[in-house]
Structures are given as structure tokens and as C-alpha cells.
């Protein structure tokens, strides 16, 4: 039985879909309210949190956890859709400490709030930056940060 079948059997109501892309590449989409449970279960095999990426789709945000298993040599990408009007999700820093900076970056760029994160602050952008620039609706040209005009002086 593959890892994906096991995951589906263990959490039948939380797994939305699973896909085997090719050898060593597994994809799964799960519901956000069971995320911590699923991650704790997956941690037994998938000990390395490679990356967390945020994606802005037309109807939802998606937080994707890329997990690598050093023992099984497989990569599982766990996709968690979250609604645009409530962009919040549980932090997995208690499970993989590597999540710390990745979650801060996703918060910085997409405004996704990771609940119970020890220090959820901006990481790449300055503290006083307004907005979350990797969202598709962020207006680069109108932003005072990118238009070449500073808010006080009108133009540089």
C-alpha cells in the first residue's frame, strides 16, 4: 500500500484528493481543520519540511507543504486550500521547526495568518510595508513603494 492510500484510509473525511505524479512525487489536498493531526501523522515518515509555498488562485489561497522523506526518498506535497475571506491556518512550527521562516514569508507575501506561530512578523519586507505584494490583486504600479513616488513628497 502506498503512502497516499494509507493517508486516505487514515483520514477519509479530511483528504480531498490524492495524486501520484511520477515516481517519488506524491500530491495530496487536505482540509485545513485537520491539518495538525495529518502533519503529526506524516511526520513519522516525512521528516524534512522542504518548503512552504503560498499560491493565490482566483477563488482561494493555497498553502502547499513540501515534505521529503529521507528514509523512503519520496516527496509529498500537501495542498491546503483556505478561503480568501478568512486566510488563517494552524502553524506547524511545533512539528517541524523549519516551518518558522517559511510561514513568516508566506504571511509577509500573502497575508496568510499562521495561528500559534511564535513570532509571526514580516521577514523580507520592512515592518512598515503595507499590503501583501504576492497577491494577484496587489497593484504594483499604484503602490507608493513601487511607483517611484514617496507618499510625503509626491515624487522623488
Amino acid at each position: 500500500m502506498t503512502e497516499l492510500d494509507e493517508l486516505k484510509n487514515k483520514f477519509p473525511d479530511a483528504v480531498i484528493e490524492v495524486k501520484l505524479q511520477r515516481e517519488r512525487r506524491l500530491w495530496a489536498a487536505v482540509k485545513r481543520d485537520r491539518l495538525l493531526e495529518i502533519c503529526k501523522y506524516l511526520k513519522q515518515d516525512f521528516d524534512h519540511l522542504s518548503c512552504i509555498s503560498g499560491v493565490d488562485y482566483a477563488d482561494r489561497f493555497e498553502v502547499v507543504y513540501h515534505l521529503w522523506s529521507y528514509s523512503k526518498k519520496k516527496l509529498l506535497s500537501l495542498k491546503v486550500p483556505i478561503p480568501k475571506d478568512d486566510p488563517a491556518i494552524d502553524s506547524v512550527t511545533a512539528i517541524w521547526k523549519a516551518a518558522d521562516w517559511h510561514e513568516r514569508e508566506t504571511y509577509d507575501m500573502f497575508g496568510v495568518v499562521f495561528e500559534k506561530h511564535p513570532n509571526l512578523t514580516r521577514i523580507l519586507l520592512p515592518e512598515d510595508f503595507e499590503g501583501h505584494p504576492f497577491r494577484k490583486d496587489y497593484k504594483l504600479k499604484e503602490s507608493p513603494w513601487f511607483s517611484g513616488k514617496s507618499p510625503e513628497e509626491g515624487s522623488l
Partner: peptide, 9 residues
């Protein structure tokens, strides 16, 4: 253990 858990590569 820390290296793996903290995402070192």
C-alpha cells in the same frame, strides 16, 4: 536530529 527538523540541507 535538529539539523533535519530545522530544515538544514
Amino acid at each position: 536530529e535538529d539539523a533535519i527538523n530545522m530544515g538544514a540541507t
